[in-house]
Design a protein around this nucleic acid. Sequence first.
RNA 1: GUGGCAGUAGCUCAGUUGGAUAGAGCAGCGGUCUUCUAAACCGCAGGUCCUGGGUUCGAGCCCCAGCUGCCACGCCA
Length: 616
Amino acid sequence: MFPGLHAPPTRKAAGVGIKMVSHRTGIALENGSQQAMQIWFNPASGLEAAILATSGLDAGFRPDVRPADPRFGDFQANGVLPYAKERKTNPRALAVATLDKVRESGALEGMSAEIAGPGFINFTLSPEYLLRWLMTYSDAERISQGMAQENAGTVVVDFSSPNTAKEMHVGHIRSTVIGEAIARLLALKGMKALRDNHIGDWGTQFGMLIWAVKSEGYDLDNPCENAVEELQALYGRGYAHYKSGDEAAALVREELVKLQDGDAENMRIWRRITEISKESFDRIYKRLGIRFDMTLGESFYCDKVERVYKELCACALAVEDQGALVVFHPEHKRFATQPFIIRKGDGASNYASTDLATILYRVEELGATEIIYVVDSRQSDHFEQLFLTVEKWFAATGRPLPKLRHVSFGTVLGESGKPFKTKEGGTVKLRDLLDEAVERCYAMVSEKSPELPEAERRNIAEVVGLGSVRYADLSQNRSSDYVFSWDKMLALEGNTAPYLLYAVARIHSIFRKAGLKPGECESAASAFESPEELALARKLAAFGPAMEGVLGDLRPHLLCSYLYELSGAFSAFYSANRVMVDEEPVKARRLLLCTRTLAVLETGLHLLGLQTLERM
RNA sequence: GUGGCAGUAGCUCAGUUGGAUAGAGCAGCGGUCUUCUAAACCGCAGGUCCUGGGUUCGAGCCCCAGCUGCCACGCCA
């Protein structure tokens, strides 16, 4: 552990300034000839629209343009095949005819196109087109302009959601990190993204906590340095007492009832516990650069569940069953008999009650058109039942139904393949995990770059360490479990944060050595020639299609894959092509590639919640 | 029992929702620094896509049946 490690570094603005135009909007440039060259931000969707407009085929035709295997070109349109199959015509002949029509329209200026195989249409962007693309989408702002939609709506992102009186542990990392990335991605798309931390601050655990606080005379107003640890221990002793016999259990339950009835002393204790917990959460969030627009936990909804019970009973969705109030879904194979319990037999609310009240609040008070829950996949039954219930409830009451999405994710496993635990078998505290990541990185940077001042090495360690933990999580398909491995996440090789951050630092270094700023000295650029230049330019122009995949199903790992490939293309270019050469047009175009690679890498990494460095 | 998710190179994983010869990284082997950060780059090798049927011009992807593993299923969240 190093002194001063807890001081958070100054953060750059993590979001990206955005003004939006449709991604289908291209920018037309004079080509020097009579034809104008369309420079689409996303050439795939640009081609899609152009082919659709000029093909002359029936309404059922979808060109299906996608990035192609580099052997065949930059993009390929596959849509002719299924179309021809349905109409029982020759696909290859149809592809030829379609391509002729598109070509006549002039939309393919700046690229070559040819038919291959049974009827694929392959498109290859010319070096001139690539150069103009890079000239047009010249910085992070203009790049992000290509992506947004107007009036995309208001989305509430419900993520992180720790329980009060407990320390955040490794189980919270995925929701926190993925949720933050998704909020940033949706904001980029033009949505009003509201981050809501739905903390667990109400429920049966408070009976035990309050009992323990009182019986031990614990002074909540003068907590020790790590008060949450104390709270967790108090809870443990309260729980043990609760389990020790009927009389003890009754005493504990009594404290809970008093709290729920608004008893002043118990409310005071509850409030202090919540404050102490929030301070602990905030230290983690501050370190990770995460800020919530609201923290409306379960307690916020305790006076809002009555209305839900009434409405659901009024529209006959909820029924009494074995003393509890439940919802069945007769049309569903399992939920016809597996109840959705919205009020417990003892009359108390639960997770389902507050989730229902929360949706109502988000729609009525926050104007949500979409709600996203970043919650682990074990709760998929709960969300399926919740969403089914809301659909019917809102239909019955004539409310607009928001889009409801459960963005689920798998468990973090240790290298044994079992859920990640400490050597002693306890839960791993998130604070300790982050400390260890930074500590390991400090050792690495001190070994690799001992010449840097210590303060800078500390900052590098913080950025790389935290970034590595986040990136390791985000770079994996969120739906599967993932194996936590220090060695893999901190490696310089492979799809890791250090590799990407190193690429960023190297680009900054080029400009530093040349005495230039990114964006300078590139106007004289000539068209790309070397295979490495062309491969890098192509990769840059493929940013739009990559982002489309990321946003479609909210899969940040696709952005990671793209950034990794881009970094790889840059490293290959950098090794094979010297940037600071004498010939001006060559130097200019290589500086252009450096500038654009930097802009895309930094934009992408900031979207994922990582900071970037100028040196490492 | 019902349902969900998964099974791809020795290991960890991608695979753009049905497209062309299934891709990376580790680990293994072999190369590249007097030149902008070698924390890098280039190359070689590595496959019964769990099994068996089916759908069609085309299947790792879709359908059916099995096998294996993880998870969820009445008063926790």
